[in-house]
């Protein structure tokens, strides 16, 4: 049955290249060739041109992002720092805020408010290393009920696992029960923010998601001992908004803390004196290092608040920490306390 191979080769007819295929191939080669040549050699600003002789075209310049000034002016008759004493923490907070003219002076109905606690470590609230859940619940309720705020956000970028820090300190549960919403950082949550006048964070990644479209910002911090910085109070609390390689900042801690007062000009700063970490800060861990006081501090001058807490909550007789002097220089407030503190009890 097999055919003779020699015979089959004799009768074989090849399929020639048709004119149409020839033209098509020439056109294709010219198209691809000239297109590639254009993209590779056209001047840098021409459309679709990818030429990059210096290697610098790839650098993207995002539009600069700046944080707004969230502060609200107060009448001259009101002292910039108010201390609420006695009673439950909730009462103390209300007294302190009344001393400033009431929370409704600062937050209008329908506004979105960010409350920034210090939840840096996975610690129980009683150890004083983090903001207590009770005062957060109080301020959130006041914002939602008294001020009719549209949304209250609570956010921090902790050193340890964010989910754990918020959950095990009871902060998440307290916030959600009070009607607030917790924002935790992830890879998408940071944007580079520009801060004119800042020495170290002129442009630095900031935990920006909770700050998007926000109207007012309130810091709620504990008062803590801090080996390098002297104290970690209201201003140092904004450290928790920073992303990036922030462990470099300890090489010049006073500069960074005074920069933080430039980065964030809050509506209000609150310091809860319920549990003051006197030694072994900022992590603590020993109940013996925690001192309870009967006051809540609120105010519109972050520098004066830190100065008062340094003296009266941490009981320091030493000169004020260097960062407060630098913050004064940068125009974030005044450490002078005489006649500027109102006590409500």
């Amino acid at each position: 049955m097999r055919s003779d191979p020699a015979e089959s080769i004799q009768s074989y007819v090849k399929a020639p290249l048709s004119r149409r295929a020839f033209v098509g191939r020439i056109a294709g080669a010219l198209g691809i060739g000239s297109g590639a040549t254009y993209m590779a050699t056209a001047p840098e600003d021409s459309p679709l041109g990818i030429r990059d002789p210096t290697g610098s075209r790839r650098r993207r310049t995002d539009p600069p992002l700046r944080l707004a000034d969230f502060s609200v002016p107060v009448p001259a008759a009101i002292s910039p720092v108010a201390i609420g004493r006695d009673g439950e923490p909730d009462t103390r907070l209300r007294k302190a805020l009344d001393g400033l003219g009431g929370l409704r002076h600062f937050v209008a109905p329908g506004e979105i408010v960010l409350v920034k606690p210090n939840v840096a470590f996975d610690r129980a609230a009683i150890l004083g290393a983090t903001t207590g859940p009770e005062i957060l619940a109080s301020i959130i309720r006041m914002l939602l009920v008294d001020c009719r705020a549209q949304e209250v956000r609570v956010a921090d970028n902790p050193i340890e696992s964010p989910a754990d820090c918020f959950h095990k300190s009871g902060v998440r549960q307290a916030v959600e029960r009070a009607g607030g919403r917790v924002y935790l950082p992830d890879s998408n949550a940071f944007r580079v923010v520009e801060t004119p006048g800042a020495a170290l964070i002129g442009a630095w990644p900031v935990f920006h998601r909770p700050l998007t479209n926000v109207d007012k910002v309130i810091g709620v911090a504990p008062a803590k001992d801090h080996n390098l910085c002297g104290a970690s109070i209201g201003i140092k609390n904004w450290y928790g908004l920073l992303g990036g390689q922030r462990n470099r900042f300890h090489q010049n801690i006073h500069e960074i803390v005074s920069d933080l007062a430039l980065l964030m000009r809050p509506t209000l700063s609150i310091v809860d004196g319920s549990r003051v970490l006197m030694r072994g800060g900022p992590t603590g861990g020993d109940l013996g290092d925690v001192r309870g006081t009967d006051c809540v501090v609120a105010g519109v001058d972050p520098v004066a608040i830190d100065a008062w807490c340094h003296r009266h909550l941490l009981d320091r007789t030493s000169p004020l920490p260097e960062y407060l002097r630098r913050a004064e220089e940068k125009g974030s407030g005044r450490a002078e306390l005489a006649g500027r503190v109102k006590e409500v009890s």
């Binding site: 462990n247 603590g284 861990g285």
Partner: peptide, 11 residues
């Protein structure tokens, strides 16, 4: 510097 001392969690 002393970030290490700051974050050391034992008391």
């Amino acid at each position: 510097c002393v970030v290490c001392e700051e974050v050391c969690p034992v008391a």
